[in-house]
Design a protein around this nucleic acid. Structure first.
Lengths: 242, 242, 242, 242
DNA sequence: GATGAATGAGCCTTCATTCAT
DNA sequence: TATGAATGAAGGCTCATTCAT
């Protein structure tokens, strides 16, 4: 209800082109009790909702993930998250103690999800190159099917750097991913693809690639697809004729 | 006319309020982009020496760069910038019409600086690989000597994605860098190092690498150094034994 | 909020009523988890069905008294009270219609209790001075044994002044105490200790002393003890050598 | 600064204030454009051009004093203070960093004022009794001419007990007053009116009396006047016939 | 009777921005 | 040019209260 007002500005350059930043596929304009199969147009009543299904917490997490991905920690407001779920900010605090806590919860969930996906696609393969290729592919897939996850993953870097109090969970998560990537590299050393001395170098290189892909995806999806291919060919040694 | 707002955005409404308006006698329909008659002192006119103005302006830009790099667009406050220069926020508005304008100015400057540095180190080399290696090295150097620049470069990705109204300058800048990287790739095609058909793939791959390095640098500098090495060896084909 | 679901507790055999379960002097100290409803197996029921209501109600009153004493009307939240009893705020509303009503209930109870204690210690004595001394002593005792009562008694003054809608009960209570103190003074007039003309002066002076003691006690207990002695000696005329 | 606090605590409370009851004839009720800045001879200190309107700060302090006196720390909102001065809450923060800081500033000012007044009236007298009588009289005068000061002075006890972070200034202030009262008592010992052994007892008794008067004044002004008389006669030994 | 979920108002605080000086 | 004061819109969070279950 507060809104209205900026109507006046309306971006004159409606033309807008290209880029078109990612954006969540499910708009959820505002205020709509959205993910509900049964919309129930009436404004929410004061007490406990009739259709409470216990999924609210999960819905909040999803909305929060999108918001943080789209706007970052600071710019994403609790109101933004709440209204996307069709709640008031107060209700959010019934489920999460603070914005920070909410962020951390989203973080944990996302981090776990990404870790699982990477692990799932990499494990079946035997060689380092095959594993990394699978990871790169998965990175692309992730950005496509789950833009919010990718967006969030990107946001994290900046958000955490800026808000020291978010760092706690981040550190452990980063360690976990590092650990996983480490396993991949070690597999390469085992197969002889990599020199043991190059362990950290390779580790950081892979991390850089994946990070770069994640960032790129937030801008131009097509570019990411090509970059994935390029990265794979770089690994395979078929990109540069030499 | 219902302001057609891209449903896509969802981002916060930072958009400058546009309260604007001085008593505008013209009908409301007019949608002036902003009656700001900013002088745009970029182009020096009349031999008039910049009277300290240029000096303060530059100091503000430097401070702003740091702030935006450290905190991101939303979280960096005008006060933070002003106080770093030893001014009050009000004074800022003598040099820049708004936070957004300031950001754009910083952006332009940084983008130009980065472009110049990349160009400077790449040009002397003849081959694609050599050029890219030089760029990668320069990326590392940049992060070390000019963390604010690197930080800002990183922030940009997120900030721009989140604040549609910042996009304008971003698009052109991105195009410029793309253009430069395009030249580098073309050089590779000319030397036969790359297949013409791979142009875009390589372009995006290089971009991804550089982007990844920039992001990484904001977290663990050491990792970046190693990643630079790894990336170079990847290009050279000496990272993976195969 | 973490708040693990309490599910359990239940305690079906809550029927017991007993005499009155004196106010448990050591209720949940602070936000501690729920105070575990003590089973009290040897429940013996009286003829009344007493549905445990009286019990919970009393526990709430005790907790509320403490909270209001500690934090004042505004700052004491319903949550603070509820959690101290091991309930949710919603449950509070089963026993009291509103925070205000709860406050009023506590008020009435406390006021009555104080009145009774003062009356009990003063009555046995015959002279004004003896009665007042007894009251002063009792004030000290009250602050020590029942800090919550003393704290609340003090709080009242301010809370009532600030929240006009609480005034109703206050007025009558004040009248009651005034009435009692009036009796004490009248006793003094009867014995010839006081001049009839001084009635109101003495009345207000005694009130002031007691009030002062109550306030002081909330800060430094020791000081109160000394003040009690001082006041008594002032009455006895042995404080100032003259 | 720990200030001995009883573990059992129970803390005091908002003590009161009540200035109201009668329509407060004071300042701009709400939204008033701005009370004409009464030309208090701007004693511009130091050449520093603090600007002409150094009065706003003072106006805020006055309003805050009233608000805190009337409502206590918790219940007095920044909005309440701001609107009374004809400002928005935001403006408050231009002058005081936080509500707490504002409170502390008011506190310091009030404490100083009270101290000065007490000192001023007590000093001229030679005997303990005379000094105390003067103080008691001044307490009454204070409550009448400056209800906000008296109200605030009273509120302090409760507010400080409840908000530990306000304690800092309080402790020192309390010490200061104690010190002054100590001097008064010492004067009594010097004149032989008091036994040296009774020092603390007398000290606490006087404090209790003054405190009680302050509290009472917030409720029924007339009662206070009578209590002042009663207290003086108690000291003089003419209240009780004996 | 009690819980859990929700609301809506209000609070403290921050911030971009304006404007008189 | 620069400052200082001020505004108005949020923002994060708390709270009394309501109700379906």
């Amino acid at each position: 209800m507060a809104s209205s007002r900026k109507a006046s500005l309306a971006a004159p350059d409606e033309i807008d082109v290209d880029v078109d930043i990612v954006v969540d596929p499910s708009p959820a304009t505002e205020r709509e009790p959205r993910p509900k199969p049964k919309p129930k147009p009436t404004a929410r009543r004061r007490g406990r909702p009739v259709d409470s299904d216990g999924l609210t917490r999960e819905r909040i997490l999803v909305a929060a993930r999108e918001c943080f991905a789209e706007a970052g920690y600071t710019a994403a407001s609790t109101h933004m998250v709440a209204s996307r779920v069709g709640l008031t900010t107060g209700a959010l605090y019934h489920h999460f103690g603070s914005k920070r806590e909410l962020y951390l919860a989203v973080f944990t969930e996302v981090e776990q999800l990404v870790d699982e996906r990477f692990r799932a696609v990499a494990t079946p393969h035997a060689t380092f190159v095959a594993k990394v290729e699978a990871i790169l592919d998965e990175t692309g897939r992730l950005s496509t099917t789950d833009p919010a996850v990718a967006g969030f993953a990107l946001s994290v870097t900046g958000d955490v750097a800026r808000h020291p109090d978010l760092r706690e969970a981040f550190t452990s998560a980063w360690a976990r991913r590092d650990f996983f990537f480490g396993e991949v590299v070690d597999a390469g050393i085992a197969t002889g693809e990599l020199a043991a001395a190059d362990r950290t170098v390779v580790l950081d290189t892979v991390t850089t690639l994946v990070t770069g892909l994640l960032v790129i995806s937030n801008g131009i999806p097509v570019a990411q697809a090509r970059a994935v291919e390029g990265a794979k060919r770089l690994l395979a040694g078929t990109l540069i004729v030499s």
